[in-house]
Design a protein around this nucleic acid. Structure first.
Lengths: 147, 147
DNA sequence: AGAAATGGTGTGGATTACCAACTACTCCAG
DNA sequence: CTGGAGTAGTTGGTAATCCACACCATTTCT
């Protein structure tokens, strides 16, 4: 009775899911002395390199924020910068081997943490959920394999 | 070939969804001069009052952090504190009418922002998704209506 | 009653985040 | 092919976030 919005339950459960997963990620990140934002950066870089501005846009942050983020991650040896050969203003950021390794380990921990929850779903529901969420997310922005 | 983990696609899409929704929430929150954390606090208080420590635990934050968060929200008139009558150490935090109104408006904006994405799903897929995510989240912790 | 535990606040320091200003570079118009 | 507009990134300044730690007040255990 509070509302007859047919979308409300979905929005609600989506936001609750987001907060739940965010909580898991934040907690896990803290055990590696990482912030959630740093984890997000590492997550993006897991399978592509990217310019500072692109990373910032992707996370909805100011480019100066991203600059500092990359600074600190670089100081810790997790990422590195390369001058972009095609545009000498631009800087490409990518994971170092250490950063990739940390990202991999962190993923395994996230997986371990989420697995008990995910296993509440029967196997075919799990793949259904993947399909639904992928539809929701839409096509990936193709950040790397452009011509 | 990167991995034969059957859970990986699900973990992956779940985290991507989380980041996507987090992005929307962060962007929207900023238009009201709110941080994501403040939105999370308001979200919890939407349907219950809570002690500082409980709120902190719920969000995985230190209680001193929550204290400051409540301070600033209180200064803006969004929440208020009451001494808990049963435990004089404890402080209950709850939304003011202004806070509740802001929370309601913010929800509508989130809804408006997510609707185009959610409408990519046919109606019966939407309700299926609700069911799946609710199973994933499990039963609510019943924070308020305990005896 | 006294000791241990719990709830909340305050301080100090690192991080996150914005904005504005600046440098270096690219791209376009003329 | 040059001048100016626009773009990429960094830096500096300020506010908010967040933790660790120390500190009271109150409750609970012994």
């Amino acid at each position: 009775m509070t509302s007859d919005d047919p979308l409300e339950p979905l929005v609600d459960v989506l936001v609750r899911t987001t907060f739940e997963v965010t909580g898991v990620l934040t907690r896990l990140a803290a055990t590696h002395d990482l912030s959630l934002t740093q984890v997000r950066v590492l997550g993006i870089l897991r399978d592509r390199r990217g310019r500072v501005t692109d990373l910032a846009a992707y996370l909805g942050l100011d480019k100066s924020t991203m600059s500092g983020l990359v600074d600190r991650a670089e100081r810790r040896g997790l990422v590195a910068r390369d001058k972009n050969p095609h545009d000498r203003r631009a800087v490409d950021v990518y994971l170092t081997p250490a950063g990739a390794e940390l990202t991999r380990r962190a993923y395994l921990e996230v997986r371990r943490e989420l697995a008990p929850l995910l296993e509440r779903l029967p196997a075919d529901d799990r793949s259904r959920l993947v399909g639904l969420l992928e539809t929701f997310l839409g096509p990936e922005p193709d950040t790397d394999r452009a011509p």
